[in-house]
């Protein structure tokens, strides 16, 4: 079970969180014309990387905040975590 550093609450076990997918996906702006390809990329197409991956988790049984977690998908190593509005350098 992963051990995740919630930037709001501290170290918490994975069973307090729910997974929210790739954090690098950006929703197209409202009312913007988007091509089929662009929209499909947003809704469906994911890279499914092996290695370092920035992903979203929600601390659903804790502070309910969505956070960003930088995790290695092969080793499960967690490098850094960020608040939702924090810039990832």
């Amino acid at each position: 079970m992963l051990y995740i550093n919630c930037p709001h609450c501290g170290m918490r076990s994975q069973n307090e969180f729910s997974y929210g997918g790739d954090a690098s996906v950006k929703r197209p702006k409202l009312n913007k014309e988007v091509s089929d390809q662009e929209w499909d990329n947003f809704v469906y197409n994911r890279k499914s990387l092996r290695g370092k991956h920035l992903e979203l988790w929600q601390h659903i049984s804790g502070c309910r905040q969505w956070i960003k977690v930088e995790r290695d998908t092969a080793t499960h190593e967690i490098f850094r975590t960020f608040k939702a509005d924090e810039e990832v350098a």
Binding site: S18, G20, R27, L56, Q58, I60, R64, Q65, W66, A84, D85
Partner: peptide
């Protein structure tokens, strides 16, 4: 609820 929180926190803060 989670859906609303997602859009408020991540997409349209």
């Amino acid at each position: 609820l989670s859906h609303l929180e997602y859009y408020l926190q991540i997409v349209w803060p």
